[in-house]
């Protein structure tokens, strides 16, 4: 089987407003698949339909070769779902939580304890969940959705609301989940997260998939210019404008920024003039792809 998820012309509307408006895609085994878009783009609804929590208005979904709707108790042990809000039993410690979830799948306590170790929460095992930090709760939630060793893992905005350090830690965890051979489907409204983690990204807006490809290919397809900046003392703006291949020059007092599609010759020329002091090169990102696709600035 070389298709894990196949979605064809999926549609769902709420009181006449289309939340998901005819999307189709395929996720392959072992793939880290991202759905990127601003809030309200239809990412969560899409995910909930694939997980079998909502019935599509029309269209077809195949998850591991089966239909997720109606609820299929044979399929459920093969998928793991981490929800946006941390859903835990009240008044229980981290270890009790994960052991309870493990027991629901018939998984022994030993395996639950191992999972706690994998997500680095052994020293918090006896802490009540409501006393854990946001990042720790997220890690525990992910551990709870992985404890039965699912083939496909769904993560809905796993890093929203976390501080930068906690986000980086969680990224490492998510990569290791994927490297263990699981197919991961992630929704996010963070551009950098999609770029850092995903093999392929579907960019969604207003219930439609605008484009689907690897982050690098999406950016390459833009033919977007590079921004090269050096210290203001290194080169005079007038000289910079004269360089071959430079399309636009701007300055902000401390640095001069050159916009070009021919980075090779511009950088070579700057190097020849010994004008590389304070050099910074910034390429296009998924923000630029979104801007290009929708004609508007990306706002998460």
């Amino acid at each position: 089987m070389n298709v894990v998820i196949e979605v064809r012309d999926l549609r769902k509307s709420y009181s006449g407003v289309a939340a998901v408006d005819g999307i189709s895609f395929v996720a392959r085994p072992g793939e880290f698949f991202g759905i990127l878009g601003p809030n309200g783009a239809g990412k969560t609804t899409t995910l909930e339909m694939i997980e079998g929590l909502r019935k599509p208005d029309s269209g077809a979904i195949s998850l591991l070769g089966r239909s997720p709707w109606p609820r299929d108790e044979e399929l459920l042990p093969r998928i793991g779902v981490q929800l946006q809000a941390s859903a835990f039993f009240e008044q229980m410690t981290a270890r009790e939580q994960i052991r309870t979830f493990a027991a629901l799948y018939g998984v022994p306590d030993r395996r639950a304890d191992e999972m706690l170790e994998t997500v680095g929460l052994v020293d918090k095992a006896d802490t009540r969940t409501e006393k854990l930090s946001g990042g720790q709760q997220q890690r525990l939630a992910i551990a709870c959705s992985l404890v039965h060793d699912p083939e496909v893992v769904f993560l809905d905005e796993p890093t929203s609301g976390l501080d930068p350090q906690a986000r980086r830690n969680l990224w490492d965890l998510l990569r290791s989940i994927n490297e263990a051979g699981r197919t991961v489907v992630l929704t996010t409204h963070y551009m950098d997260e999609a770029e850092a983690l995903c093999d392929r990204v579907a960019i969604m807006d207003h219930g439609r998939i605008l484009k689907l490809d690897s982050p690098a290919a999406l950016v390459r397809g833009l033919d977007a210019p590079l921004h090269i900046s050096v210290e203001a003392a290194a080169i005079a703006p007038a000289d910079a404008r004269g360089l071959a291949g430079v399309e636009h020059v701007s300055e902000d007092g401390s640095s001069v920024m050159l916009t070009t599609r021919d980075a090779q010759s511009v950088l070579a020329e700057l190097a020849r003039r010994s004008a590389l002091e304070g050099l910074q090169v910034r390429g296009a990102g998924l923000e630029d792809v979104f801007l290009d696709l929708t004609g508007r600035e990306y706002r998460a």
């Binding site: 997980e51 459920l76 629901l104």
Partner: peptide, 18 residues
């Protein structure tokens, strides 16, 4: 109500539990 609000009910619906 608490389990529905915290989405624990959803977690249980996603587990192979009748």
């Amino acid at each position: 109500v608490t389990w529905r609000k915290s989405r624990l009910l959803r977690k249980l619906r996603l587990a192979p539990v009748p």
